[in-house]
Write a protein that binds this DNA or RNA. Structure first.
Lengths: 223, 223
DNA sequence: AACTTGTTGTGATACGGCTCACAAATTGAT
DNA sequence: ATCAATTTGTGAGCCGTATCACAACAAGTT
């Protein structure tokens, strides 16, 4: 319920102020919170559900940057800088969201310096992630390398990372996975086929079992 | 001299505080301010000269993210978040830099909320740029498209953008340009040859004349 | 059970761009 | 002016992967 972690450990005055300016809202699956290029209306604190963050080229080609989880603040940098949203946010589950209007939020930041500092930290994190994305995209990892990285990252989220043979749910289609690593759907299908043939992974329904984590790590680091 | 623009329009108290914690330093050409992966020592406010910001893969492949100009604050997000520097900063001119130690800077931010807000804005900008980079890398623009974009961006910096046939100095080698758009040196050479053959650009020494801006723009937008 | 719709598996083909290997042209030192 | 070092120009070949075109499933509908 209280998943707006970022603004949680503020002093009570700030917390109260935040309560008065936030709008608790609910969105169905598939709702669009904002679209890249739009003028920033405000921030969205994700409390429940997942949100797909993506950028999209004029020709329809899409790159999924990340699947945001509860606790994340969306639209923060655009709201702070006043520049257009740099990406598109679309719910992929029913979501609960706290929305704060831009003017309210900016006033809130100026009046509560500890919140402002938290925001700076948050923005640093986002920048950090973006840099990782740039690294993975720019230093031309092969598609196979990027898929291996993605699978390892996913397995580390589910608390399954410690296990020798981590298990994970593939909640995304090959098409979406392709959009996450910047390749085509067919390539993803072929890569999975290859991983299975080489006994590195094994799938039962939508569950994927990593049978050879070491091999996957090798793939993730060496071309 | 007073090129640390970001912290310029603060109240006098903050300004004074900043003066006491900054170290004015000078670096020769080729000096390394920080390396990706290092623990953050503090921020570097670039006052004079240019700094090359890059990330580097284990195999030596390098991607130049940007050439920072005076006024830019380097190492900001790492210093705020405490995570390692996410890129490498190396001077390509003799540079004058104001350095502020991490602890001093964090204290400064907590004591001067307007500075903190400025930092949040600055970080938003950086995040924005990173997103653009992601877009240009991820949505697989062809090498030609990216080069066209780069040339247009450069011509718009020199105040030459208004002119019908902007002129610009190519201060970088083909190799470095290749590292900026994530391709190989040979490809850059071939692309330039092609642009010249098609009368879109023309070069005299290290000066490049854009003869057909419209064509270049077409290249930059349509694959 | 028959159909529609969305996903996945797989071949054939084509192309962009990387690599390798030199040659030609600059640039800078002495 | 000469020589070394760097940068640029260009060909040939190769590899990864995008694209196209279907076939094989799966899941839900009526």
């Amino acid at each position: 319920m209280r998943a707006d972690r970022i603004f949680c450990d503020l002093d009570t005055a700030a917390l109260q102020a935040f309560e008065t300016i936030k709008y608790a809202t609910a969105y169905p699956k598939g709702a669009v919170l904002f679209v890249e290029g739009q003028a920033p209306r405000g921030i969205f604190v994700l409390c429940k559900g997942r949100v797909k963050l993506s950028i999209c080229a004029t020709d329809g080609k899409t790159l999924i940057l990340k699947i945001a989880e509860p606790g994340e603040v969306l639209g923060l940098s655009a709201t702070v800088s006043g520049k257009p949203y740099e990406l598109t946010a679309e719910t992929i589950d029913p979501c609960q969201v706290n929305f704060v209007k831009r003017e309210d939020f900016l006033r809130f930041l100026k009046e509560h310096s500890d919140a402002c500092f938290k925001v700076a930290e948050q923005l640093s994190d986002k920048y950090n992630n973006a840099c990782h994305e740039v690294r993975s995209l720019g230093l031309s990892h092969s598609a196979g390398e990027k898929l291996a990285k993605l699978l390892l990252e996913w397995s580390s989220r589910n608390g399954e990372s410690a296990k020798v043979e981590p298990r994970l749910k593939l909640a995304l289609t090959h098409e979406e996975i392709a959009q996450m690593i910047g390749t085509s759907r067919e390539t993803v299908t072929r890569l999975f086929a290859d991983l299975k043939k080489r006994q590195i992974v094994q799938s039962k329904g939508s569950t994927l079992l990593i049978r050879n984590k070491a091999a996957l790590k090798t793939l993730a680091t060496n071309g």
